[in-house]
Amino acid sequence: MSREDVLVTPDWAEQNLDTDGVVFVEVDEDTTAYDAGHIPGAVKINWKTELQDPVIRDFVDRGAFEKLLSNKGISNEDTVVLYGGNNNWFAAYAYWYFKLYGHRDVRLLDGGRKKWELDGRPLSTEEVSRPATSYTAQEQDTSIRAFRQEALEAIGTQNLVDVRSPDEFSGKILAPAHLLQECAQRPGHIPTALNVPWSKAANEDGTFKSDADLRALYGAAGLDASRPTIAYCRIGERSSHTWFVLHELLELSEVKNYDGSWTEYGSLVGAPIELGTKG
């Protein structure tokens, strides 16, 4: 694996808009941006209504994921290129999700919608429909997904990377003020967690920093590359961005995304919580 196997440049993407076997997918929680103009030929996936179970707090199950991808016209053999707004947060979440269900070849568009728009590349409002497929998903690969018990057991034994803003980490606020307020019962962070906000891994145009810069970033923060790592944020999408950096770009082994994240952990009765910044 190398950066080219998991991340495509806007140039590559533009040259491969019509390539057979390459499917572009825009992923967001709000698809109005897609409807106003998307990468030509791209289909859309709504993070909230299509990837989340409508009743219980979990992902859609394997059968529902198969049905979703079949209806979108995505086959097991396709190279899926994901992109979206918000610096690719939800696209990175979907990337992790596709990996969880065993899709062979999935990649992120470096910089997402932002870089694409800043470059002045083509957008289309044409409706996209692809012939249905019969997609087969694998059982969830839980080697990349952490659950609450693992987060508790990681305290002091594994790298916990809290990718939220410093004010969320310290417990000053429960959620960034400009965003929707989905909150845990208590503020703070998991004891022994490092705080490396997701944004430090990205340039201002939304592209990822170089491998050398990324290694320096997590090294300086105290990440021990010889230990397993769990990344978390508030609902698991910003931490997917960091999971992508650690597992796919830097190729650290044993990196999991804790999608329950702070909205789960910070509501657990009796779970240890630390306040303040690291001393």
Binding site: G85, P176, A177, H178, L179, P197, S199, K200, E204
Partner: peptide
């Protein structure tokens, strides 16, 4: 100079942040 938040300006160029 550290990143805090990002939004996209509306059709009329408007934006707002809840900050401190």
């Amino acid at each position: 100079g550290e990143f805090t938040a990002e939004v996209v300006s509306s059709a009329s160029g408007a934006f707002r942040f809840f900050a401190a």
